[in-house]
Measured scan of single mutants.
Amino acid sequence: CHSECLGNCSQPDDPTKCVACRNFYLDGRCVETCPPPYYHFQDWRCVNFSFCQDLHHKCKNSRRQGCHQYVIHNNKCIPECPSGYTMNSSNLLCTPCLGPCPKVCHLLEGEKTIDSVTSAQELRGCTVINGSLIINIRGGNNLAAELEANLGLIEEISGYLKIRRSYALVSLSFFRKLRLIRGETLEIGNYSFYALDNQNLRQLWDWSKHNLTITQGKLFFHYNPKLCLSEIHKMEEVSGTKGRQERNDIALKTNGDQASCENELLKFSYIRTSFDKILLRWEPYWPPDFRDLLGFMLFYKEAPYQNVTEFDGQDACGSNSWTVVDIDPPLRSNDPKSQNHPGWLMRGLKPWTQYAIFVKTLVTFSDERRTYGAKSDIIYVQTDATNPSVPLDPISVSNSSSQIILKWKPPSDPNGNITHYLVFWERQAEDSELFELDYCLKGLKLPSRTWSPPFESEDSQKHNQSEYEDSAGECCSCPKTDSQILKELEESSFRKTFEDYLHNVVFVPRKT
């Protein structure tokens, strides 16, 4: 048989008469490798580009789960590009990614509803959504962080984005990388972005840091009482949809009607710091009717980097990364020049730590249904340095008659930039024990000054392991946590139920 035959053949030295091919099969003959313009397919066939392209389009058009959109890589027609490569849609070739590779997620039936953290986790790592997304989240724990972890990498949506009755959302900033909504599939009414009845939605994105392009379709905003109209108009300008909307697409009466839409800028007039305090004062603000001013709200939190936005980490279910302080308005003076500047002394802060701070007014709604208010920009203030805590785990070892090696770990709280350490030492008198000992005694162990690591005695271990207080009263049991108490109650309830079950099964009433 021919060298490319495997198993047997019907005619000697003829690659077209093989029972099976050793390498690849091409047009009725066995070959060692697939010549151009053919590609290896499933490690035994040679196919042309049209064959591989037909497989790709067949799966793409069917949208069946589990099928493969075949691509070409290293002269092979394979189910998908290997790690580190992405497909070129024009020629199906796998090309190296520039940075992290995109991950295209194809949605069944063309859309997916995100109504819980669990459903959001199914899209973790996706960068391109081939379909439409509907966000409908009523509640949950730590929602802002969970949504950002699972949806934060999405850069492109081919269909539309719909935010509907998501009472738990305060902001859409968890879509931190969303840059493009194509609108290839539109919501009824030709809408590519749809926001309806979101009672706590206050911000779409921080438009000073976020760009969003909507290729096709219109915007729809109705019944978002805490979303200011200025935020919607800003989205029109940034996304390129200005002029597409009709009169009733953006409701003037049901958007922002319960919001404090600040239209003035508060400026800080005085800032002073110490290692654990920050004193702030800002310019006074009074609405047209000074009785509408209820006070100020001061927001602050630790910020290692200057990239904080107002609604980071917030949701309507209680999660809030900001510390909020309510401040009463100052006494009002008739003389504008003698107006008191409101302020606040922030206490209990960490030394040498940068804080993000902003302040906003708290006002009631005027009778004319106009909203007044003022808010400052987010500023960054760093507390002063102070003395560091003591170095940890000092170790001293003498390696000769004239040297001592000293080692330690950095302090747990540096409280500033540590530039150097101060080492103090003092000579001590020799131990009298060394002169009084009889060095001729056998088995004498000389006193040693070398360091030995501390260890816990058996008594201390027994005390720590004991669940009861000892007789001397030195140790006591740790208080039980809520989960331990709940577990004990469940076990007790189970024992009672099981005992009742045994009584009912074992003891049967005697027939009379």
Score class of each variant (00 low, 15 high):
Lys103Phe: 06
Lys103His: 02
Lys103Gly: 15
Val104Lys: 08
Val104His: 12
Val104Cys: 03
Cys105Glu: 01
Leu107Phe: 09
Leu107Tyr: 08
Leu108Arg: 10
Thr113Arg: 03
Ile114Val: 11
Ile114Gly: 00
Ile114Leu: 10
Asp115Cys: 03
Asp115Lys: 10
Ser116Leu: 05
Ser116Arg: 01
Val117Phe: 14
Ser119Gln: 07
Ala120Leu: 10
Gln121Pro: 06
Gln121Glu: 13
Glu122Cys: 09
Glu122Arg: 07
Arg124Ser: 12
Gly125Arg: 11
Gly125Phe: 03
Thr127Ala: 02
Val128Asn: 01
Val128Lys: 05
Ile129Lys: 00
Asn130Gly: 04
Gly131Arg: 00
Gly131Phe: 01
Ser132Met: 02
Leu133Cys: 01
Leu133Lys: 02
Ile134Leu: 13
Ile134Arg: 05
Ile135Asn: 00
Ile135Thr: 04
Asn136Val: 09
Ile137Ala: 06
Ile137Asn: 01
Gly139Thr: 03
Gly140Ile: 11
Gly140Arg: 08
Asn141Val: 12
Asn141Lys: 11
Asn141Arg: 07
Ala144Glu: 14
Ala144Thr: 02
Leu147Ile: 05
Ala149Gln: 14
Ala149Leu: 07
Asn150Cys: 05
Gly152Asp: 01
Gly152Ala: 01
Leu153Gly: 08
Leu153Gln: 06
Leu153Met: 13
Leu153Thr: 14
Glu155Arg: 15
Glu155His: 15
Ile157Trp: 00
Ile157Met: 06
Leu161Thr: 02
Leu161Ser: 00
Leu161Phe: 05
Leu161Cys: 06
Ile163Ala: 04
Ile163Lys: 03
Ser166Ala: 06
Ser166Glu: 02
Ser166Met: 15
Tyr167Gln: 15
Tyr167Ile: 12
Ala168Arg: 15
Leu169His: 08
Leu169Trp: 01
Leu169Ile: 08
Val170Ser: 07
Ser171Leu: 02
Leu172Thr: 12
Ser173Arg: 06
Phe174Thr: 05
Phe174Met: 06
Phe174Asn: 02
Phe175Gln: 00
Arg176Asn: 07
Lys177Phe: 07
Lys177Gln: 05
Arg179Leu: 07
Leu180Gln: 09
Leu180Val: 11
Leu180His: 10
Leu180Arg: 09
Leu180Lys: 11
Leu180Ser: 10
Ile181Asn: 00
Ile181Ser: 00
Gly183Tyr: 02
Glu184Asp: 15
Thr185Pro: 09
Thr185Cys: 01
Leu186Ala: 10
Leu186Pro: 12
Leu186Arg: 13
Glu187Ile: 11
Ile188Leu: 09
Gly189Arg: 04
Gly189Val: 15
Gly189Gln: 02
Gly189Asn: 15
Gly189Ile: 01
Asn190Gln: 09
Tyr194Asn: 14
Tyr194Gly: 13
Tyr194Arg: 11
Leu196Ser: 06
Leu196Gly: 06
Asp197Leu: 15
Leu201Met: 02
Leu201Arg: 00
Arg202Ser: 12
Gln203His: 03
Gln203Met: 08
Gln203Tyr: 14
Trp205Gln: 01
Asp206Ser: 06
Ser208Val: 07
Ser208Arg: 07
Lys209Glu: 03
His210Ala: 06
Asn211Ser: 12
Asn211Pro: 09
Asn211Trp: 12
Leu212Arg: 00
Thr213Glu: 15
Thr213Trp: 05
Ile214Met: 14
Ile214Asp: 01
Ile214Gln: 03
Thr215Tyr: 09
Gln216Ala: 09
Gln216Leu: 07
Gly217Val: 00
Gly217Pro: 01
Gly217Thr: 00
Gly217Gln: 01
Lys218Ser: 01
Leu219Gly: 05
Leu219His: 03
Phe220Met: 13
Phe220Lys: 14
Phe221Thr: 05
Phe221Leu: 07
His222Thr: 04
His222Ile: 02
Tyr223Arg: 10
Tyr223Cys: 09
Asn224Ala: 02
Pro225Leu: 07
Lys226Tyr: 06
Lys226Phe: 10
Leu227Asn: 00
Cys228Thr: 03
Cys228Met: 04
Cys228Glu: 09
Leu229Pro: 01
Ser230Tyr: 01
Ser230Trp: 04
Ser230Thr: 07
Ser230His: 02
Glu236Met: 06
Glu236Lys: 14
Glu236Gly: 02
Glu237Asp: 15
Val238Leu: 13
Ser239Cys: 14
Gly240Leu: 15
Thr241Cys: 14
Thr241Ser: 08
Lys242Asn: 12
Arg244Cys: 06
Arg244Val: 05
Glu246Ala: 04
Arg247Thr: 11
Arg247Tyr: 08
Asn248Gln: 04
Ile250Asp: 09
Ala251Leu: 06
Leu252Trp: 11
Leu252Asp: 04
Lys253Val: 11
Thr254Lys: 10
Thr254Gly: 12
Asn255Val: 03
Asn255Pro: 06
Gly256Gln: 05
Ser260Arg: 08
Cys261Thr: 11
Glu262Met: 04
Leu265Pro: 12
Leu266His: 01
Leu266Ile: 04
Lys267Leu: 08
Phe268Pro: 01
Thr273Met: 12
Ser274Thr: 12
Lys277Gln: 02
Lys277Tyr: 12
Leu280Arg: 00
Pro284Lys: 05
Trp286Leu: 11
Trp286Lys: 09
Pro287Gln: 04
Pro287Thr: 11
Pro288Val: 11
Pro288Ser: 11
Arg291Phe: 05
Asp292Met: 09
Leu293Ala: 09
Leu294Gly: 12
Leu294Met: 12
Gly295Phe: 15
Met297Ser: 13
Leu298Met: 14
Phe299Trp: 15
Lys301Ser: 10
Glu302Met: 09
Ala303Arg: 06
Pro304His: 04
Pro304Val: 04
Pro304Asp: 08
Pro304Lys: 15
Tyr305Val: 12
Tyr305Thr: 11
Gln306Leu: 11
Asn307Arg: 02
Val308His: 00
Val308Arg: 05
Val308Ser: 11
Phe311Gly: 09
Asp312Gly: 09
Asp312His: 09
Asp312Ile: 13
Gly313Arg: 10
Gly313Tyr: 04
Gln314Ala: 13
Cys317Ser: 03
Cys317Asn: 07
Cys317Pro: 09
Gly318Lys: 02
Ser319Cys: 10
Ser319Ile: 15
Asn320Val: 02
Ser321Pro: 04
Ser321Ala: 11
Ser321Lys: 14
Ser321Gln: 15
Trp322Arg: 01
Thr323Tyr: 06
Val324Gln: 03
Asp326Leu: 09
Asp326Val: 02
Asp326Met: 04
Ile327Cys: 03
Ile327Thr: 04
Pro329Ala: 06
Pro329Val: 04
Pro330Val: 07
Leu331Met: 14
Leu331Tyr: 06
Leu331Arg: 12
Arg332Leu: 04
Asn334Glu: 01
Ser338Asp: 01
Gln339Ala: 10
Asn340Asp: 15
His341Val: 07
His341Tyr: 08
His341Leu: 09
Pro342Gly: 10
Pro342Cys: 05
Gly343Thr: 05
Gly343Lys: 11
Arg347Tyr: 11
Gly348Leu: 06
Leu349Gly: 01
Leu349Met: 05
Lys350Asn: 03
Lys350Leu: 10
Lys350Val: 04
Pro351Met: 02
Pro351Tyr: 10
Trp352Val: 12
Thr353Phe: 04
Gln354Met: 00
Phe358Ser: 11
Val359Glu: 00
Thr361Ala: 12
Leu362Val: 03
Thr364Ala: 15
Asp367Lys: 11
Arg369Met: 05
Arg370Met: 03
Thr371Tyr: 15
Tyr372Arg: 15
Gly373Cys: 03
Gly373Val: 03
Ala374Asp: 01
Lys375Thr: 07
Ser376Asp: 00
Ile379Val: 14
Ile379Asp: 01
Val381Met: 08
Gln382Lys: 12
Gln382Ile: 14
Ala385Phe: 04
Thr386Gln: 04
Thr386Tyr: 12
Thr386Met: 09
Asn387Met: 12
Ser389Met: 05
Val390Pro: 15
Asp393Val: 08
Asp393His: 06
Asp393Ser: 11
Ile395Leu: 12
Val397His: 11
Ser398Gln: 14
Asn399Met: 15
Asn399Val: 09
Ser401Pro: 04
Ser401Gln: 10
Ser402Phe: 11
Ser402Pro: 04
Ser402Ile: 04
Ser402Cys: 04
Ile405Leu: 15
Leu406Val: 15
Trp408Thr: 00
Lys409Leu: 06
Pro410Lys: 05
Pro411Asp: 02
